[in-house]
Each structure stands twice: as structure tokens, then as C-alpha cells.
Design a binder for these strands. Structure first.
Lengths: 207, 207
DNA sequence: CGTCGGTGAGTAATTACTCACTCACTGGTA
DNA sequence: TACCAGTGAGTGAGTAATTACTCACCGACG
């Protein structure tokens, strides 16, 4: 019998959040029982409620905790200053499409939105809106500089993020296999999209 | 007291499926109780189990029932024969992005995939795979005819569907408002994408 | 010895599902 | 016409299991 040292309140809380996050991501809020969470965290069910007053509060703590990564936005900002279009788009795409990316957050996001959790919007804002807001601003700037064609920047940004997110959806949620490497996939998407945005002397749009 | 004529077995079954579909779409499988379904269909809970042996069987019946629309694929086929690229893409996009489109199917699809229902894959295949398989074939043909650039047709098809599906996701699941009309949105997406696919004499890709 | 991490044993409510039963209608028969 | 047995739609009242959550209590350590 090894005698486990008792955890501090903070450690336990973190452990519970981690255990619950993976369960909620796998089975949704309603599909996960507090007993399962307790067992996954290696404690009694009663202790769960010592740390979080309700199951829903625990769920909220998960959504509130996971924060966006700022270093990516920094790198994007830098590439944007240099007007390195390809790099801007590649950075954003390969942040989502890369080997070993964790599907937990995507699943949690979808579950929370579908199940209509109150914190869903905040979660969405922190994880996704920032990206397409940033991107829309950049596209707008480049249109102003006559480097890109005249399109609605917000629609264009969503279109690009859409390619990327949809790819993850197919792969991580629907189990569609990737027939190309991560790099090839990203390169193709960036290529297609940038080419679509670029101005070309020949052929104007029809409508 | 108006005396309701008793329904036939088929009518009841259809009513139950309709009631259950909207509830499952709204709250997921685990979030919906059989009592709610019965009440929504206006019958006793016991009758639900006279028609479907288990709750899961009822869920399965829903997924198995809803079929894809063939008239769209017919129209696409026709446009494809005429090599009317813009029309092919516009048809597919505006089938998904149009006023009054029902979000029930999209929600059911996501729920079933997230909750890992066995019939999810079949559901996905009937509603989505057909589209990007068709589209990929067409893109492949057009590449062969040197009308489009050399890209992986499957990736390209997914990229386009990705724009469209992501748009619906934002709008119908995450509640992001559409700041453009349906037509403008579709036109922008098609325009961006087609322009990206087209060959342009000037400026070759950098890598 | 008091505080804090931790638990076993509950409880009230809800859940999917069952069962014994009623009611409305049909077709055959006298 | 009158009657009656059969059938299938429909239900009220359960039941066993599960669920989120509670509470009285334990024991280690400063």
C-alpha cells in the first residue's frame, strides 16, 4: 500500500478539470456522469462537489479556463507587418492543421454550442472569433493597398477559416482520413485561397 | 369533447419520428427524454415503446429516414455537362446557404457524429459525402481539360464545401449573424473559389 | 485541537422501459 | 338488425436503475 500524499486544493481542482474535460469532450455534458468524472480523477464523487458546487459549474470552469494562444497572434502580426501574405495564412492554417493536434477543444466547442451552454459564446470568441477578426482586418488592409481584390473582408476571412475548420471537422469528428500530409494540405488551402484573393489582370468577374 | 379518430400505425410512427427529430436536434440524444417525445407527439410514453423497442431505435429510424435530394444532383450534372463552372458551384453553395433552410439536419448530423452513433457515418455519407465526391470528380475533369490549375481535386472540393458548411455552422449553430444577403454570400464564396482555381498567365506560385 | 483533504452511505428525483388493462372498430353470424 | 369475438391502438401506473447532490464523519498534520 503506497501512501499517497494528499493533494492541495489547486492540484485536485486541476486534475478534476482535466478529467472532466476529456470526458465531456468525448460524450458531451449530458452523456457524462459525475461518478465517471470522480473515478477518472481518482477521487470520490463527494469530493467533486467539494470543489464545484454543481456539475454545470465544473463544466463552466473548463470552458472558462482554456485560453487562446497569444504567441500565434504575435507571429501573425509580425508576418502581417512584412506583408508576407502566404506566411500569414499558412501560420493560421497550420496552427489548426498540424500533427498531434488535440481534438478535445474542438469537440468541447461543438458540444457546448449544440447543447446551448451559456459559456459557449465566450468559448467560441476566445478560440475562433479572434482568428477571423484578425484575418479580416489584414485582408481589409491588403484590399486597401490594392494587393487583393475587392471582397467583403469578413466573408473572405470566414471562408478561409471555414476551409481549415471544416477539414478538422471531417478528420477529427467524422473520421474521414487525411490522404495528404499536413503540410501539403495546408499548402493547398493557402495556395487556393491566396490565388483566389489575388488580382489578375486578365478576366474580370462576370456579374 | 371532440373525439379524435385514431391514427394508423404509419401516421403515428411518422409523427413520433418528426417530434423526436426536432427534439434530438435541439437537445441531443442524451438531452431528450422519452417522456418529452411522447408529449410532443401527443401520445402516452408507453405508446412510444409500442412503435420503437428502444429510444436508440427511434433515433436510428430518424437518421435512416432522411434522404438526400436528387434533383439538386441532377441540376449540377446538367451544369457540369455544359462546363458552366460558376453554375455548378453556385448550385451547390446555394443549396446549403439559402433563406429558410432548416437547421435540424445539420444539428442532427453534428450530434450524431459527436455522440458517436453507429448510423452517423451513413447519415454523413448521404448528406455530405455525395456532394464533395461529385464536386471532386468535376474539378478533376476540369483540371484534365486545363481549365483549372493542378490541385488535389478532393482537397479542393472539401475546401469549397468547407467554406459553405462553416458558414452554416457559424450562422445556425453559433448564432453569428449574416451581415450579407444569402445571394451575396454565395456569390462571394463562388467568386473567391473559382478565381482561386482558375489558371492565370501572370504570377506563378512561389514555392 | 482545529482545520482541511477526503469518503461511505445515503436521498429525492428522474430515467428508460414494462405490464395489465381499456377502448374503438371490424367482420362474421344468427 | 343485434350481437359478439377478435384485433390493434392506446394508456395509467408502475419498476429497477441511474443521477446529481448531501451529510455526517474520519484521519493526518501544523
Amino acid at each position: 500500500m503506497t501512501r499517497q500524499p494528499r493533494s492541495t486544493s489547486q492540484q485536485r481542482q486541476a486534475g478534476l478539470i482535466a478529467a472532466a474535460a476529456s470526458l465531456f469532450a468525448a460524450k458531451g455534458f449530458n452523456g457524462t456522469t459525475t461518478k465517471e468524472i470522480a473515478r477518472a480523477a481518482g477521487v470520490s464523487e463527494a469530493l467533486v462537489f467539494k470543489h464545484f458546487p454543481t456539475k454545470r459549474a465544473l463544466y463552466g470552469a473548463i470552458l472558462a479556463e482554456k485560453v487562446t494562444v497569444d504567441e500565434l497572434l504575435g507571429a501573425v502580426e509580425e508576418a502581417a507587418k512584412k506583408r508576407d501574405d502566404r506566411r500569414v495564412f499558412t501560420l493560421i492554417a497550420s496552427f489548426r492543421i498540424r500533427p498531434g493536434v488535440d481534438s478535445t477543444l474542438l469537440r468541447l466547442l461543438l458540444f457546448s454550442a449544440l447543447e446551448g451552454h451559456e459559456l459557449s459564446e465566450m468559448f467560441f470568441g476566445k478560440h475562433h472569433r479572434v482568428f477571423y477578426d484578425h484575418l479580416a482586418t489584414y485582408i481589409g488592409t491588403r484590399i486597401g493597398e490594392r494587393a487583393f481584390r475587392e471582397v467583403d473582408p469578413l466573408l473572405a476571412a470566414r471562408a478561409f477559416i471555414g476551409m481549415v475548420v471544416h477539414h478538422r471537422l471531417l478528420h477529427e469528428i467524422f473520421g474521414v482520413s487525411m490522404h495528404r500530409s499536413h503540410e501539403e494540405t495546408v499548402a493547398t488551402y493557402v495556395d487556393l485561397f491566396l490565388n483566389g484573393l489575388m488580382k489578375h489582370s486578365t478576366r474580370e468577374r462576370t456579374r
